[in-house]
Simulated scan of single mutants.
Amino acid sequence: MDNNTTNQTGPSFKTEFAVDMTCQSCVDDVTNVLKQIPDVKNFDINLKEQRVIVEGAAAPSKVSRALKQSGRSVIVRGQGVANGAHAGAAVCIFDCFNENPSMLPEVSKQGLARFVQIDNDTCLIDITVQGLKPGKHGIHIHELGDISKGCDSCGDHFNPTEVDHGDIETGHVGDLGNIEVEDNGWGDLVLESKRVKVWDIIGRSMVITTGEDDLGKGKSSQSKWDGASGAGVLCGIVARSAGAFENVKKVCACSGATLWEEARVNERDQKPQEVK
Rank of each mutant, 00 (worst) to 15 (best):
D126Y: 08
R264Q: 14
A239M: 11
A90C: 12
V248T: 08
N120A: 07
G216Y: 00
F97Q: 06
L104K: 09
S205V: 07
L67P: 04
G135A: 01
D156R: 03
I37L: 10
G80R: 00
G145Q: 05
S205W: 09
A90H: 00
E162I: 04
V198Y: 04
T210Y: 06
A263M: 09
D121H: 02
S25A: 09
D214T: 14
S153D: 01
N46T: 01
D188C: 08
G185T: 11
D188R: 10
C96A: 00
L144V: 05
E99L: 07
M1W: 11
G166S: 11
R77W: 04
F17R: 05
S64A: 13
E16M: 15
N184Y: 04
G155K: 09
A242I: 10
D29E: 05
F115L: 09
D126A: 05
G227V: 11
A57C: 14
K197E: 15
R65P: 10
D152Y: 11
I208C: 05
N98E: 12
I93Y: 11
V74M: 06
T5V: 15
R72A: 06
V196M: 14
L67H: 05
P134W: 04
S73T: 11
E55M: 03
T258D: 12
N159I: 01
W186C: 04
G216I: 02
P60K: 11
R204L: 10
L234C: 05
T122C: 08
L234R: 06
G203N: 14
S229A: 14
N178I: 09
V265R: 07
I147F: 09
I53Q: 01
E267L: 06
W186E: 12
N4M: 15
R77A: 15
I127Y: 01
A82W: 01
I93T: 01
D121W: 13
G185D: 10
K14F: 09
C254Y: 13
N83C: 02
S102Q: 01
S102I: 05
F158E: 01
D226S: 12
E267Q: 10
E49K: 08
Q79I: 06
C123E: 03
K41A: 07
H157N: 15
C92S: 03
V76W: 03
I201R: 02
S25F: 08
I37M: 15
I141H: 08
N159Q: 03
T31L: 10
P101T: 11
S255R: 11
S221Y: 10
D28H: 05
V129D: 04
K62D: 06
V233F: 07
A263G: 02
N46L: 03
Q69L: 02
H86I: 01
L189F: 04
A263K: 04
S229C: 02
D269H: 10
D20A: 15
E212K: 07
V107K: 03
A59C: 15
N46Q: 08
K14T: 07
E274L: 15
K249F: 14
D44L: 06
V190W: 02
G84W: 08
A58G: 06
L191P: 09
E274K: 12
Q79W: 04
F158I: 07
R72F: 06
K194T: 05
